[in-house]
Nucleic acid binder design. Structure first.
Lengths: 195, 195
DNA sequence: ACTGTGTACTTAACAGTGTTAACCTACGTT
DNA sequence: AACGTAGGTTAACACTGTTAAGTACACAGT
């Protein structure tokens, strides 16, 4: 294993054990049995190191979503499965999820798009499901890519409130999550009032 | 002005100018013309200082929402106004908004509830609108408090994606926000298919 | 008038942070 | 044999949050 890989592996361990906020160059270096400055031979700075972890986490999230997508279900069920898989991943792997949104390198705006093509693939996965539902006249959407982002954002918000411990203590977490998913999905489907 | 107030005021200035991540005890102290240790006479630690700023921001957000609520509109319109006011506040005051969600004191779980009663009032503002809509058979909700949290969470997610610059460059921001609000509101209303 | 108490502040220090400049050393190529 | 370079090192800079100990001063009780 190259030192670069070793550094990432050690950083990952630290991420899982203590969260991304407690990753420090010196701590990583110590566990990789090198000096802190050596890391700079393989990563431009700390942001780039963390970004490597972000990429890994996005990939993992993407594969979880892909695994949750049953190809024969109807689009509404598929969307629900995707939402629940997303929530499950986030709550089961809070550290790995958080780093995706919490790390914001300074140069983010002008960051090479290639780095984010993996995340686009995830969006397109959602967009496809929405497209299929639109064809079947199940979903009431205008632009499916925008809708995919909207769906993602809404679920992220729900997850984020739970992870940030901002949920009212009176509200049971599971009930909140279930009801949130219902509302979110309902925002996309065309509803037919049973006459 | 007491030193405590002066410290908060200076911290606020720093928050607005550089964001919450760049607030440091020594920087605050320097601008308040005292030493860093003096801050500890008025705040238990940095988290408590930041929490004071969080409270201020929540209060401000709350009053913006209250101002946006036209008492004579129908609940659907009211909900839309609240959502848009929320988004406007967050995008116009990113630093003040971010600190609300980004600061997570270690002892958050067991944090005194009183501190968060202001934010509860905001939730209850939303919950009331939802309740009124429920009475008028406009909204399809189970528990209105949970729905209020859900709505909040969804909007936060949408805002957060924009603020974190995670929005696809192909997607125009305004269109995304409009469509997101539409979807979110639609998730709450009972739709009647025009026969 | 003298002593004591408490408040509000300071200085000095600890243990850590990201990052850079300068240096060293071993290996592969010419 | 000489050179260049890849991959590491040490030392240092300028920060960070936080604590222990010390100081200066106002006010109260005797």
């Amino acid at each position: 294993m190259s030192l670069r890989e070793e550094i990432i592996s050690v950083s990952r361990q630290l991420l899982l054990k203590e969260g991304f906020g407690k990753i420090s160059m010196r701590k990583v270096a110590r566990r990789a049995d090198v000096t802190a400055t050596s890391i700079y031979l393989h990563f431009k700075n700390k942001d780039e190191l963390l970004l490597a972890l972000v990429e890994e986490s996005i990939l993992k999230l993407g594969s979880e979503l892909k695994a949750a997508l049953k190809p024969d279900s109807d689009p509404i069920e598929q969307l629900k499965d995707l939402a629940n898989a997303y929530i499950r991943y986030a709550l089961d792997n809070p550290q790995e999820y958080e780093i995706i949104y919490m790390v914001r390198p300074e140069e983010m705006p002008k960051y090479p798009k290639e780095k984010f093509q993996q995340i686009r693939k995830v969006y397109e996965l959602i967009a496809e499901v929405i497209s299929r539902g639109k064809e079947k006249h199940l979903f009431d959407v205008d632009d499916e890519l925008i809708s995919a982002y909207t769906l993602w954002a809404q679920i992220h918000g729900v997850v984020s409130v739970v992870l940030n411990k901002r949920l009212d203590t009176r509200i049971p977490r599971e009930k909140f999550l279930d009801q949130a998913v219902d509302h979110i999905i309902q925002g996309f489907v065309i509803q037919k009032t049973p006459v």
